[in-house]
Design a protein around this nucleic acid. Sequence first.
DNA 1: GTAAATTGTATTGTGTACAATATAATGGAG
DNA 2: CTCCATTATATTGTACACAATACAATTTAC
Lengths: 156, 156
Amino acid sequence: MKTEDDLLALDNQLCFALYAANRAITARYRPLLAELNLTYPQYLVMLVLWEANQDGKTVRVSDLGKRLRLDSGTLTPLLKRLADRKLVTRLRDTVDERVVTVAPTEKGIAMRRQAREIPGRLLCGTGIGEERIVALREELRSVLSLLEAQGEPSGR
Amino acid sequence: MKTEDDLLALDNQLCFALYAANRAITARYRPLLAELNLTYPQYLVMLVLWEANQDGKTVRVSDLGKRLRLDSGTLTPLLKRLADRKLVTRLRDTVDERVVTVAPTEKGIAMRRQAREIPGRLLCGTGIGEERIVALREELRSVLSLLEAQGEPSGR
DNA sequence: GTAAATTGTATTGTGTACAATATAATGGAG
DNA sequence: CTCCATTATATTGTACACAATACAATTTAC
């Protein structure tokens, strides 16, 4: 009885630790991203676009979805808000009209310069060492791949 | 240049690993919690209420907020939905009318029995060992406390 | 004892998440 | 060539998150 009860204790749940840590980190990002007028998911989208832009690759909405594990119901309005602010362009492919290609504008690309300071500023002062961050990140990536490998036929 | 660029690479960001892993775990919970007709945050609220109920303690909205790191804007509508389904009661304190005490109903308490199987069913088949889960959970808790200790004057 | 600050919850508005559904375009199978 | 499954995105609806604000009750300062 005691054992099963313990399993339901909030503090014993990995998921809650993940849930709380995720929101705590996002909360740390918020004031930094506010300087760029970006939300956290918008920032992630920009990261993907900046990377692709440097590699000379184009990015479709579905590519963003696969990379960030988000569906169109999340991405479409988010991208429209970024497009309204002239940070990205959304162009429907003329060959295959089902496809919408997303690219950063000059303004969007320029924002990358300011974004560069963010990772450095984020964790400084928290007393979390570099190697600890790397270890945790890799463990999370490993767990993520295990979670995604099992169960459902494929990622969304 | 290369170094700073790497810092902005999506795969090098702890925050994204956390963000993706959190949503992957929540997605794993979803079908299990659907059997109870609970969302994941609703489940967390019930966990807190079940714990307090066993300890004979009362829980105020602000207690839930502190424990789960959620504010009233999230909790109030969530608790109203649980109350609509007769899983919890929301009673305004007659002495201090600012206080609302939340408690599970008989129906809410009965649900605990079904919830017990969930932690066990969740990760079975993923190939993630028990000790690995514990280690990751403790590391996340440690990081969380460091994140919460610094910066802002206090937690929300 | 009363004004001011604090506390506890609620409300409003914006922005994700995601299931379910819709819609349009493409690529075969026949 | 045409029906049909598939693909890519968009739309709708529900439910968080959280900032900002509101407001009533309580506590503190004086």
